[in-house]
Design a protein around this nucleic acid. Sequence first.
DNA 1: ATACACCTTAGAGTTTGCTCCAAGTCAATG
DNA 2: CATTGACTTGGAGCAAACTCTAAGGTGTAT
Lengths: 128, 128
Amino acid sequence: MTIKEVCEKYDITPDTLRYYERVGVIPEVTRTAGGIRNYTEKDMGWVQNAICFRSAGMPIEALIEYVRLFQQGDETIEARCQLLKDTREQIMEARKKYDIALQKLNYKISRYEEAVKTGILSWEEEPK
Amino acid sequence: MTIKEVCEKYDITPDTLRYYERVGVIPEVTRTAGGIRNYTEKDMGWVQNAICFRSAGMPIEALIEYVRLFQQGDETIEARCQLLKDTREQIMEARKKYDIALQKLNYKISRYEEAVKTGILSWEEEPK
DNA sequence: ATACACCTTAGAGTTTGCTCCAAGTCAATG
DNA sequence: CATTGACTTGGAGCAAACTCTAAGGTGTAT
């Protein structure tokens, strides 16, 4: 699969994909004889993972570290496991903050919807 | 309340608080005669909201827009309501991605934990 | 074989959101 | 009233994560 096809599939730019490979967020991609990237299923799996974890706020650095450990072979299995657990902790922590924000938003929106109907904007405490 | 006290309360730096005020993420803060910031309860409410929504990934620009609308008075109530709904949509979208990442992580971690015990690292499909 | 679209690299530039610095002001204490 | 420490501003600097540019190579359709 060409870089363009991968980009369309995952809605990402070629620049970003090349950047990910350059810095080590994904391992080096398979190439044609002419040097053009030709993504295999395995390559795509790495891409998919990178996109998924990035979209959950996992920093580039952590992804690079995981790939680095992976490439060092089986003796890094425990380290990789720990890295994933730490990552999970961070994502769960972040998600908690999202939930709190959503609660706040829901409260505000309910007040605003009432205000739009009645013309009266009332807050329990602080007017914001 | 002085800037320092507010910073301690919300675990944020004075630079960030001043930055928020400068760009309009929070409205102008109450000052002493000498020009020193003296945060009222109302000011603190804005600070708390800014921190909460920022931690859920709401962009600075959206927060500025909200404050701008707020300062224009009651005729912007509907616009503010819409902005909050759009924000909620985005945060819920982002949270979905967090959940997907967490599922992936849980699967990987379970495989790794087995590998740590048995020495065998097995994947359903792609080895990653 | 010659366009033509698409690919390559190295390296510079951009955006977002802070973070730091210098030079000066304010206020509490001895 | 002098010292000390926290506060002020404007503006520069920085880190993360892309994003763009220039100059050139690849591959395929006519």
